[in-house]
């Protein structure tokens, strides 16, 4: 569950004021809005990359408003994937678990499981260079899901994916959510994508959130 309660965030001259919404556990939420309306700023505040000037953010039962990003337990898939160019796909999937010092066999099992879910077993030894848009997003998603986060935040995950792959990715996102039980907040400016995927749609307009059932 994500509860955003009256938060105020500054990003340069831009201010988001008194923004609130609630996404229940296990739901797939889409956050829509025009380019420049503050979607990414809001997302960064939830992740902990941007300080909030007022209000509170709750993940599950925990108030995380002032916690470091590392402590929030949110899987984040940025728009461009932001893959680590020096690491193999396997390293990406194992990264968060190695940071948590999990035993090697557990890491191996999790990497295999994720690779199978995402259909990237054949890419495990590859580096990001030369991967297609869809493949990059799968890797970024695997990396974000690897440490069993309660929440998965996707920032325009399909913007770099071609039309043909898009359908596959919808399918994949649905399947992954079902298998992992993760709560998803999916930022998009594509209305079709939001309708296709989401249980609930939030629209950010003029600094306010409106909830629309999907």
């Amino acid at each position: 569950m994500i509860v955003v309660d009256n938060i105020t965030v500054h990003a340069g001259d831009f201010v988001l004021r008194d923004v609130s919404f609630k996404l229940n556990a296990g739901e797939y939420g889409a956050l829509m809005g025009r380019t420049g309306c503050g979607k990414t700023t809001l997302l960064e505040a939830i992740i902990g990359l941007k300080q909030v000037q007022g209000g509170a953010i709750q993940i599950g039962e925990r108030d995380v408003t002032h916690e470091r990003p590392a402590a929030r337990g949110i899987g984040y898939v940025p728009q461009d994937g932001a893959l680590f160019s020096t690491m193999t796909v396997r390293d990406h999937l194992a990264f968060a678990l190695e940071i948590r010092r999990l035993p090697k066999d557990q890491i191996q099992n999790r990497v295999d499981e994720l690779a199978q879910w995402l259909g990237i077993e054949h890419l495990l030894t590859r580096r990001p260079f030369g991967l297609s848009g869809g493949e990059r997003q799968r890797v970024a998603m695997g990396r974000a899901l690897s440490f069993y986060p309660a929440i998965l935040l996707l920032d325009e995950p399909l913007s770099a994916v071609d039309e043909e792959t898009r359908g596959e990715m919808y399918e994949l996102l649905r399947r992954v959510q079902k298998q992992s039980g993760v709560t998803v907040l999916h930022v998009t400016h594509n209305a079709e994508e939001a309708r296709e995927m989401a249980d609930v749609v939030f629209v950010l307009r003029d600094g306010k959130i409106q909830k629309e059932g999907a």
């Binding site: 902990g48 929030r72 690897s146």
Partner: peptide, 14 residues
């Protein structure tokens, strides 16, 4: 890309 560092923070890194 500074995003890479930010992603690492969300993955549990200091």
């Amino acid at each position: 890309n500074p995003r890479c560092e930010q992603v690492a923070l969300t993955l549990g890194c200091s």
